[in-house]
Nucleic acid binder design. Structure first.
Length: 930
RNA sequence: GCUCACGUGGCGGAAUUGGUAGACGCGCUAGAUUCAGGUUCUAGUGAGUAACAUCGUGGAGGUUCGAGUCCUCUCGUGAGCACCA
């Protein structure tokens, strides 16, 4: 008992009380159109968090960052008379649960349920104003029924190029297409193409899930192999996914990432006749350099390679193909520096000048992009240049750099030269002209190419949504009837991957057999499936009839104008994957008339990563003991730049004695940024790292809540700095917020000798004086404006200023404190509720009954903000010389006269001539004199 | 290599249209209170000086009465992409 530190205010008592109170009264229940308590006169506001994957390790401090931000906005909008939708749920299918299950033998459903339970508890302890009645869980059959239903929508439509829209597949049947042709047009289709197979994970992966030839999860090698897989035709939407980014209020960086990922490039297809053979089509973005094409390169996997290779070259070509195919994607990119390749012995004819150009194969040409073949223009492409130099191939300059510069290797745009009928044309015109020329002769056409590949949508996993598809003995697939949804995965005891591409569901022999003739699809959907549409389900989370009712969707997603979720907050890690997939699904649903807006998320904000506490490392050259040994822990020898040096981790007990910045030339560059004031020989490097278990710098939100309270954690995370910025954790900073809240508490309450709290005698029901009126009105204004700007750190700072002013006031008008609680409520809801209720007890006439969270956001009185007097800065030649206080209504002339009569100003204009006086009313007077 | 973003005290960060640089918090210093303090309160805290002067927003130029803010160049840091023809 005695060892436990006394709490500066009893958050540990009142926080759970209010949380229970909100729960019991369903304080943040949100009504839908059609509900009895729905108020149609209010505007809607849909504020969304990226729902978490309920991992076994629980919430980390990054979660409450975004969640607190949306909670503040949501509560603020609520107080401002909006119908606010602010829900939470669980993205609970996925690899980690399954892998944990394999390790422990527990069913993934059990561990998932357990983890969800603990996540929900943690979030409730943070006091977020969620409508828990709308909680969703992607692994709930009532939820994934509709994930499967949406899949069937994708299965049952095709992309109509003419209207650039998805249309029902029945259109095609009406046109008399064959069954195979129809299957080949579906947005969800089966493909036999090479896919990313990860043997360790025992599953295939989407392109987006492979980073540098390794799996994004786990970092295992990934190989390409042809397999029969389900694909989603996201490429059809490539253009719309780019175009419709324009209207979104998203960070530029994320838009750019998506644009790059989709990778649109304009160019042309050009046919080259192979001598004594067929035509090879290449894609180029620079058709204007066709005259400079001196050789051609095919990807080693190109289907023509076999037929065109001449007999003498056959062995060498086969050997090269073999080396390339044995390389993993990773090796292929890692060894990107040196070019390799081999001549096939074949020649192609350049259509523009009938020149014979040799055909090579090289692994710098990728089968997956364009046509898998290029025309090489070494004079104007860096890669082709390198290759041509290496193999002594001819280089012909066909573009003259602008501004008369010399051609040196390669160049971008310029004027065409050595190019026959293109000579003299600037690049853009040359491109247009050559495309026309090629089109006339039917050996080329304009072409827009995308990097984006179709989305590989099946996984060989147990813990995911089964496909609502069956296969007939004749090899055809078809959908199961909607009435059979949800299709629940069979209960397996052994859900280990089979180690082969055969999915684990194959082990459920009874389940697999759908009918006498048909077997079920054994693959499952990837984790992304559930997160592609969860924001829609929140609008109408318990609807058994539809994935979301039309009215609810129309209301919350705001059919018409821009529409969509009003604010979506989450980390950058989903910049391409989730955000691209969700946009794609949404557009399909929009085309099919199932939703009312073309885009799901109107405004997106990325919260910045929270790094671990700053770490200080102190060291010095040579041997010897560090002087401030008591401050330095963990001294060890380490090799820095090949030399052994003394390195020490510097962990002061809450103190940090760091001196001035030193000249970088004077210290070792590796670590030294600072020197100790007490001992200039010791350099100290301060930096923070990503939180990780191995580094031991992970901060657990539960610990913070226990020690300082949920309000304090919320406030601290918002005060750290701008929401979108990367910032280091600081336990001292948390203390600071705790002190602030304790000061707020003591504005209202005071304690006696025994530590009992009672209302402060300084609180009085008195009229507000001018000074305090100004202070409270300024806070209302600034906090409100800052919340709108998501500038929470400055809003909190405004409340601190108010607190400091109130602390100094001898008498604190109760009405001011009551207003203050309404401002504080979105940020620190528990203490605001507690103090509001205590204020109401002491001053029943001044406060309304009910939650402070249900109060209206206070309005400020603009007249209280203006002073009678204003401080004016006096400058001479732009330098501050004095400040004077003048009546607000002073004329420009009088102000100028006052300035020139000022002693300090006179001092500085003595002996020189006044040239000009600049008067900015209410701000400054600048006297220009020389 | 390419693209984007960012450089402000000992630290995290504030600064409407160009108009008092450093709000607020941490840390630090001194004093008071307390049996005690990881308590609270008061004052101070960019450098520099006895005090002024002066110098200060990565660096160098420029525009302006006036620049953290606008322009040019340059250096550094972080993130993303990386044979995409």
């Amino acid at each position: 008992m005695s060892s436990e530190r006394r709490k500066p205010f009893p958050f540990d008592v009142f926080e759970p009380v209010w949380q229970a109170e909100w729960d019991a009264k369903k304080a943040f229940h949100t009504a839908n159109p059609g509900d009895a308590d729905f108020d149609a006169t209010k505007p809607k506001f849909y504020v969304l968090d990226m729902f978490p994957y309920p991992s076994g390790s629980g919430l980390h401090v990054g979660h409450p960052e975004g969640y607190t931000a949306t909670d503040i906005i949501g509560r603020y909008k609520r107080m401002n008379g909006h119908n606010v939708l602010h829900p939470m749920g669980w993205d609970a299918f996925g690899l980690p649960a399954e892998q944990y299950a394999i390790k422990t033998g527990q069913h993934p459903r059990t561990t998932t349920e357990h983890n969800v339970e603990s996540f929900r508890g943690q979030l409730k302890r943070l006091g977020f104003a969620y409508d828990w009645d709308r909680e969703v869980n992607t692994t709930d059959p009532g939820y994934f029924k509709w994930t499967q239903w949406i899949f069937l929508k994708l299965y049952d439509c095709y992309f109509d190029e003419l209207s650039q829209k998805a249309r029902p597949i029945s259109d095609l049947a009406a046109q008399g297409l064959s069954r195979d042709d129809i299957d080949a047009r579906r947005l969800a289709f089966v493909s036999e193409a090479p896919v990313n197979w990860c043997p360790q994970l025992g599953t295939v992966l989407a392109n987006e899930e492979v980073v540098d030839g390794k799996s994004e999860v786990g970092g295992f090698p990934v190989e390409r192999r042809p397999m029969r897989q389900w694909m989603l035709r996201i490429t059809s939407y490539a253009q719309r996914l780019i175009d419709e980014l324009a209207g979104l209020d998203w960070p530029d960086g994320i838009k750019m990432l998506q644009r790059n990922w989709i990778g649109r490039s304009e160019g042309a297809l050009v046919d080259f006749q192979i001598e004594g053979g067929e035509k090879v089509t290449v894609f180029t973005t620079r058709p204007d350099t066709l005259f400079g094409a001196t050789y051609m390169v095919l990807s080693p996997e190109h289907p023509f390679v076999e037929s065109i290779t001449t007999a003498p070259k056959r062995d060498a070509v086969l050997a090269y193909q073999k080396t390339v195919s044995s390389k993993s994607d990773m090796e292929r990119t890692e060894l990107a520096k040196e070019k390799t390749g081999i001549f096939t012995g074949a020649y192609a004819i350049n259509p523009v000048n009938d020149e014979r150009i040799p055909i090579w194969i090289a692994d710098y040409v990728l089968m997956g992009y364009g046509t898998g073949a290029i025309m090489a223009v070494p004079a104007h492409d860096e890669r082709d240049y390198e290759f041509a130099k290496l193999f002594s191939l001819p280089i012909t300059q066909v573009v003259q750099p602008p501004d008369g510069k010399e051609w040196q290797g390669f160049c971008d745009d310029g004027i065409a030269v050595n190019s026959g009928f293109l000579d003299g044309l600037p690049t853009a015109e040359a491109k247009a002209k050559i495309i026309d020329w090629l089109a006339e002769r039917r050996c080329g056409e304009q072409k827009i190419n995308f990097k984006l590949r179709d989305w590989l949508f099946s996984r060989q996993r147990y813990w995911g949504e089964p496909f609502p598809i069956v296969w007939e003995a004749d090899g055809h697939h078809h959908a199961i009837p909607e009435s059979e949804l949800p299709l629940v995965p069979p209960d397996l005891v052994d859900f280990q991957p089979t180690g082969t591409p055969e999915p684990p569901l194959s082990k459920a022999t009874d389940w697999v057999q759908y009918s006498a003739t048909a077997r079920r699809e054994l693959n499952t959907m990837p984790q992304w499936a559930g997160s592609c549409w969860y924001y829609l389900r929140y609008c109408d989370a318990r609807n058994p009839e539809r994935f979301v009712s039309r009215e609810a969707e129309k209301y919350w997603m705001g059919g018409g104008k821009p529409g969509g979720v009003d604010l979506y907050v989450g980390g950058t890690e989903h910049a391409v994957l989730h955000l691209l997939y969700a946009r794609f699904w949404h557009k399909v649903l929009y085309d099919l008339g199932e939703v009312s807006t073309p885009e799901p998320f109107q405004r997106l904000v990325n919260q910045g990563l929270i790094l671990g506490e700053m770490e200080y490392t102190a060291f010095r050259e040579g041997t010897g003991v560090l002087v401030s040994a008591k401050d330095v822990k963990d001294v060890r020898e380490e090799s820095v730049d090949g030399k052994v040096k003394l390195v020490a981790t510097y962990k002061l007990s809450g103190q940090m004695v760091i001196g001035e910045r030193v000249n970088e030339d004077d210290v070792e560059k590796v670590n030294a940024v600072f020197v100790l004031k007490s001992n200039p020989e010791i350099a100290v490097d301060a930096r923070s790292f990503k939180m990780s278990k191995s580094r031991g710098n992970v901060v657990n939100p539960d610990t913070v809540i226990q020690q300082y309270g949920a309000d304090c954690l919320r406030l601290y995370e918002m005060f750290m700095g701008p929401l979108e910025q990367v910032k280091p954790w600081s336990m001292n900073g948390v203390e600071g917020q705790s002190r602030f809240l304790a000061r707020v508490w003591r504005l209202v309450m005071e304690s006696d000798q025994e530590g009992n709290w009672s209302p402060s005698p300084q609180l009085k029901d008195v009229p507000t004086d001018k000074k305090l009126a100004k202070a409270i009105n300024e806070t209302i204004k600034k906090a409100g404006e800052d919340i709108e700007k998501l500038s929470f750190n400055t809003a909190i700072s405004a409340m601190m200023v108010l607190t400091n002013t109130l602390t100094q006031a001898e008498v604190r008008p109760a009405s001011v404190l009551i207003t203050f609680m309404r401002i504080l409520c979105p940020f620190a809801p528990h203490i605001a509720e507690e103090l509001y209720s205590r204020l109401r007890l002491a001053f029943p006439a001044l406060a309304t009954s009910g939650f402070v969270a249900d109060c209206a956001w206070p309005t400020y009185d603009a007249s209280a903000l203006v002073d009678d007097e204003v401080e004016i800065v006096l400058q001479v030649n732009g330098k501050l010389r004095d400040r004077i206080t003048v009546p607000i209504a002073i004329t420009k002339e009088d102000l100028e006269a006052l300035a020139l009569a000022n002693d300090r100003v006179k001092e500085f204009i003595a002996g020189v001539t006044v040239r000009k006086v600049i008067v900015v009313p209410g701000k400054i007077v600048n006297v220009v004199a020389n």
